[in-house]
Computed example of a mutant assay.
Amino acid sequence: MVERIPMSQEGYARLRQELDRLQRKERPAVIEAIEVARGHGDLKENAEYHAAKERQGHIEGRIMELKDKLGRAEVIDCSSVDCSRVVFGTVVSLVDLDTDDEIRYQLLGPLEADVSTGSISVLSPIGRAMIGKSVGDEITVKTPGGVRQLEVMDIKPPDRA
């Protein structure tokens, strides 16, 4: 069975753009660089040729990886999420009951998660613990940093967060 990857429409579009760029710009450019380097003679001692071939390997590997991820993507429309409970795509405001710190996360797929931009994966410990919770619910979650006590303060759709 194929493991599906939850992803927002924006995340899917970003991966699709990267794949298009690699296939239409990067791949032809590296093929041209290989041809130019071949024209310089002996391939055994040709650093330009070896660098271009290595770059080609990286590009082809990334293209295969992106095709796999896009093929397994389960695209979820975050613009029409129900905000009565925490679900994929919602922006959740939490308060840490131990420190009174307020935290805000958008729940996204593992390929889109970036704590520095305020998004976490639905598959992360905190993400899993939040799914299905409502405003006022308390969450106890084991994280790599220890057990955390959180309370859901607000749930909003991504466009009005």
Rank of each mutant, 00 (worst) to 15 (best):
M7R: 00
M7C: 07
S8P: 08
S8E: 03
S8L: 05
S8V: 03
Q9V: 15
Q9L: 15
Q9S: 12
E10S: 10
E10Q: 12
E10P: 02
E10H: 11
G11F: 05
G11H: 05
G11A: 08
Y12C: 04
A13P: 01
A13S: 07
A13E: 11
R14K: 13
L15F: 14
R16Q: 12
R16G: 02
R16D: 08
Q17G: 06
Q17M: 09
Q17P: 02
E18C: 09
L19G: 05
D20M: 10
D20P: 00
D20L: 11
D20H: 13
R21G: 11
R21N: 09
R21S: 08
R21T: 05
L22M: 10
L22W: 02
L22P: 02
L22C: 10
L22Y: 04
Q23E: 11
Q23D: 09
Q23M: 10
Q23N: 10
R24M: 08
R24C: 05
K25S: 06
K25Y: 09
K25D: 08
K25M: 07
E26D: 14
R27N: 04
R27S: 08
P28V: 11
P28K: 13
P28F: 14
P28H: 12
A29G: 08
A29W: 07
A29K: 03
A29F: 07
A29P: 01
V30K: 00
I31G: 09
E32Q: 15
A33I: 03
A33S: 10
I34F: 04
I34S: 00
E35C: 07
E35K: 15
V36I: 07
A37T: 03
R38F: 01
R38I: 03
R38S: 05
G39M: 14
H40E: 12
G41M: 03
G41C: 06
D42P: 01
D42N: 10
D42G: 04
L43N: 08
K44T: 09
E45T: 04
E45Y: 01
N46M: 01
N46Q: 06
N46L: 01
N46F: 00
A47M: 08
A47C: 05
A47P: 03
A47H: 09
A47T: 12
A47E: 11
E48C: 04
Y49I: 00
Y49H: 02
H50Y: 03
A51I: 05
A51E: 04
A51K: 02
A51S: 13
A51D: 05
A52E: 00
K53H: 04
Q56Y: 10
Q56N: 15
Q56R: 14
G57W: 11
G57I: 15
G57Q: 14
H58D: 13
I59G: 00
E60S: 14
E60A: 14
E60T: 14
E60C: 11
